[in-house]
Simulated scan of single mutants.
Amino acid sequence: MTAAALADETAAPVLSPMLQRLAAERATGALMRDRGTLYLADGKVVHAESPATPGIDVLLTRGGALRREGWWDAVAEAGAGQRVGRHLVDSGRVPGGALELCHLGALYDAAFFALAPTRTPARFRYGVAHWIGPVRPVPVDAVQRETLRRRELLDRIWPDAAVDTAPLTRTGRPSDAPVPVGRGRVLERVDGVRT
């Protein structure tokens, strides 16, 4: 076997040929797909968002690293300059490590959905930048590897994809333990129709 053939066998599968091409050309802009958007700068993923995942604002504010008002103040003060992340750290509102952890969590979670298989073509808008600004650029290969790792993990846990979209129904069995208030509100909405 040739070295090129061996390299092809060991290379990670490509989830998005377009994303690979954009990384190779060191593109900057927004890759828009059915279930999310990946923002690139110089061919690296600098941010991702999906309606299926909480954003960095939710991770920072619900996790207690930042007050909600502090988030909106930072957006108002630094959003137009696409420097919200840097502003949060420089102003002392958020430690750099907390910002980076929340940013990477939001990025990988959103990328998981944005890179899901689809029949709709992706679109790329060159030059578009996200208002959060640079936090920690991630190579496209790392984003794809993490997405595949998560898919494989979920397939091992529960290989039936219908569980992701099937309407929820109650079991009728009583709970063994008290249900926290937030979870109780979610359970009250289970009606056999909602997914």
Rank of each mutant, 00 (worst) to 15 (best):
A162M: 10
A162I: 07
A162S: 15
A162H: 12
A162Y: 11
V163K: 04
D164E: 14
D164H: 15
D164W: 13
T165A: 11
T165K: 09
T165H: 15
T165L: 12
A166I: 09
A166C: 15
A166F: 13
A166W: 12
P167Q: 04
P167C: 07
P167S: 05
L168T: 00
L168I: 03
L168V: 08
L168S: 01
T169W: 12
T169R: 14
T169N: 11
T169I: 10
R170D: 06
R170F: 05
T171N: 08
T171G: 08
G172S: 07
G172M: 04
G172Q: 05
G172W: 01
R173M: 14
R173V: 10
R173E: 14
R173G: 10
P174G: 10
P174V: 05
P174W: 07
S175G: 14
S175F: 13
D176A: 15
D176Y: 13
D176P: 06
A177G: 11
A177H: 11
A177S: 10
P178G: 06
P178L: 06
P178Y: 03
P178A: 10
V179Q: 01
V179L: 05
V179P: 00
V179K: 01
V179A: 03
V179D: 03
V179Y: 01
V179M: 04
P180H: 03
P180N: 04
P180S: 02
P180F: 01
V181W: 13
V181T: 10
V181E: 12
V181N: 13
V181R: 07
V181L: 15
G182R: 05
G182D: 07
G182K: 02
G182F: 06
G182L: 08
R183T: 08
R183S: 12
R183E: 11
G184K: 03
G184A: 09
R185C: 08
R185Q: 14
V186W: 10
V186Q: 09
V186G: 09
V186F: 14
V186K: 09
V186R: 06
L187F: 04
L187M: 09
E188F: 03
E188R: 06
E188G: 06
E188Y: 03
R189N: 04
R189H: 07
R189A: 08
R189Q: 09
R189F: 02
V190Q: 02
D191P: 00
D191Q: 02
D191S: 03
D191I: 00
G192D: 01
V193N: 07
V193C: 09
V193G: 08
R194E: 04
R194W: 05
R194F: 04
T195W: 13
T195G: 15
